[in-house]
Amino acid sequence: MSARRTQAVVVPGGPLLLRGADVVLDEDGEQHEVGRPVVALCACGLSQRKPWCDGTHKLAQGPES
């Protein structure tokens, strides 16, 4: 098996998709283990569970009561 390739994908208006990472350091330098093959990192700053995306960016874009 070839070595895992790390890839970051910018989603327009959405999160940063990170594929093949082992650990993410947040803005405070805290380490977050990556438990899945692809993770979505918050790019809008609104997530309630940073560094991960929790879909909140959609509330800033669309209707929610």
């Binding site: 989603v11 999160p15 998709l17 899945r36 993770v39 979505a40 569970r49 995306c53 929790d54 879909g55």
Partner: peptide, 13 residues
């Protein structure tokens, strides 16, 4: 919450 924030990007795009 976390898993589907990833999955929705994979599924749509």
């Amino acid at each position: 919450v976390e898993a589907d924030a990833v999955h929705e990007q994979l599924a749509a795009r």
